[in-house]
Design a protein around this nucleic acid. Structure first.
Lengths: 141, 141
DNA sequence: TGAAATGTCACTAGTTTTGGGACAGTTGGC
DNA sequence: GCCAACTGTCCCAAAACTAGTGACATTTCA
């Protein structure tokens, strides 16, 4: 889980939007601060839009802005928006193996994965964009 | 975190060893049930040995066996033994950027990663090999 | 002494991830 | 109405990572 950089980039984008407090920010500007290219970011922003976390504006002067106040955006939503794989990546093993351990491994690992995902989501639910901003980002002058 | 299959394969190996209750099992036999090749598994078993979870025997009749009773092996140890990367894989962004969001992003993401790792380890600490066996693997006849 | 293992290294193949270009469509301002 | 500045989306190339596999010296048992 959280194995690719989508989650961390999404947080960067969202914090940057929160910092810019309602202003529309272009993918070009966001790409510059995140350290990637605008095209890639637009794809990521698309995921956030589908999840209802940001809105985007087409055309000249367009870009992205938060769909809600930073205090109302929690990281569990970001997690669900950006992460498609289960918490534990499992190897494939033969469910029809003569070995009873192999036969039940998928269910066993699935159980562990579900437990981990649950505690991770619960922890992320406690964290809001507003909280992150207050704790880590100095006020704009 | 838990992005490669080492963690899940390690659990498979350990459960298989617990199932075989003290007998020495060769990497060949383990590879068959796990669904990989012996050479790769020997590398993984090496990590478990370094972590003190299994012992291995060289030479003919050699292989691996648990270093302790299944009730004394908890999954947080397996996590630490197999996972080298932090919980949240973060993108690289310029800590000397003029953007105050970028400048503090590493610390921000590090904080989130640490919180997640902590709850994951805490949850894994509740799970023992013995518990997994009892819950998921039918008794040997 | 021979057979059967491990430990370890190196190489390969395949997959995934990221970088980046291109371009139609949309919008705002003059 | 036209131009400039964006997004959304597709595609392809490059890079990184993962797992698969073979080889072989070393160890151990019988």
């Amino acid at each position: 889980m959280l194995s690719n950089t989508h989650f961390s980039m999404a947080i960067h984008v969202l914090v940057a939007l929160a910092y810019n407090d309602g202003r529309v920010v272009s993918s070009d500007d966001l790409a510059r601060t995140v350290g990637t290219n605008p095209s890639f970011l637009r794809g990521l922003i698309g995921e956030l839009r589908e999840a209802g976390l940001v809105e985007t504006r087409l055309g000249k002067g367009g870009g992205a802005l938060l769909a809600r106040r930073p205090a109302k955006i929690r990281l569990d939503e970001v997690y669900r928006a950006t992460e498609d794989r289960p918490a534990v990546t499992t190897h494939v093993c033969d469910g029809r193996s003569p070995c009873p351990v192999a036969r039940n491994m998928e269910e066993l690992l699935g159980g562990i994965s579900a437990r981990l995902e649950q505690v991770v989501v619960a922890e992320l639910k406690k964290i809001t964009l507003a909280g992150l901003l207050k704790k880590y980002i100095p006020r704009k002058k």
